[in-house]
Design a protein around this nucleic acid. Structure first.
Lengths: 153, 153
DNA sequence: TTTATTTTAATTGCATACAATTTAATTTGA
DNA sequence: TCAAATTAAATTGTATGCAATTAAAATAAA
């Protein structure tokens, strides 16, 4: 591809992924509204339903989010009564996030979310699975770069 | 897939795309810093380099962004001297965005961006092309839903 | 023509995102 | 042991992102 072609918006893989991510988030919104969650709050709850009593750091690593994003988000979920935030007695630097009864109960309502969104999307399941696997490949390919950036080399 | 499985973070296509989009944006950042642009500012400039003297509405349609995002972003680019913002004489409702000399000149430096980012990413070109085409398919599949939401049916 | 409707940006308010810095706690090393 | 280095969250500052509302201009309809 020429340098000229490479600068066209339609040829940007980055833009394609960026636009899709926003569109998908928009698709979830009406369904998640019934749970009283935003999209980011939803993925945080997904992570917590799988593993409870985790530190902000661990949660952040799973969600690719830092404390600057998570701290206010978790405070909101705490204010909604879905979880508790308490320092780890063994290591006071860490803040342990634990689901409350209400937080665990919300999972029952959330069980319907994937199906609802999928039906609404009109996308076939094969495409979805292919995309997920490709995104996984891409993340795997990019992670070394991210790690190198972290180390600063 | 069971309802239980469908709720696992690793099975969320939405999360895979969301995480990839953020990772890609992060990859562009150091390269774009040399141009003095953020990622969103960069895609706005890409659109303007292809077509100049457009309204905020038209630009927004191409970038999937609304005036709430574009107005402040364009004001920043104007403050940097890359473009001008002026009402259309024929239709005062519209604000026409025009590149300045500096804005057009920046394109020369930007020509190197795609190659630099690509080399840095360590991703092979086939994967990139496949992903772009899949994202295109997904957007095409989702657009009817978005349009229906707009109409409210 | 004159009012009602529609269209376009701007504004407001809320929720991310993330870099950079700060603070407190813990671990390492001299 | 005890100062230096490291680690984990919180905080600060900047930049999106979008829904909802507002304001101004243009168009449609009566």
């Amino acid at each position: 591809m020429s340098y000229e072609e490479a600068l066209k918006l339609e040829n940007q893989t980055c833009f394609a992924v960026y636009a899709c991510a926003k569109e998908i988030t928009r698709l979830y919104q009406p369904v998640l509204r019934e749970l009283g969650l935003t999209y980011t709050q939803y993925i945080a709850m997904l992570a917590l339903w799988e593993r409870d009593a985790v530190s902000v750091k661990e949660l952040g690593e799973r969600l690719y989010l830092d404390s600057g994003t998570l701290t206010p988000l978790l405070k909101k979920l705490e204010a909604q009564g879905l979880l508790t935030r308490a320092r780890d007695a063994g290591d006071e630097r860490q803040l342990l996030i634990r689901l409350s009864e209400a937080g665990r109960a919300l999972r029952e309502k959330a069980l319907e979310v994937p199906e609802k969104v999928f039906c609404q999307s009109g996308v076939n399941i094969e495409m979805l699975l292919k995309i997920r696997s490709q995104m996984g490949e891409l993340m795997t390919a990019l992670q070394p770069v991210a790690a190198a950036d972290q180390r600063g080399d």
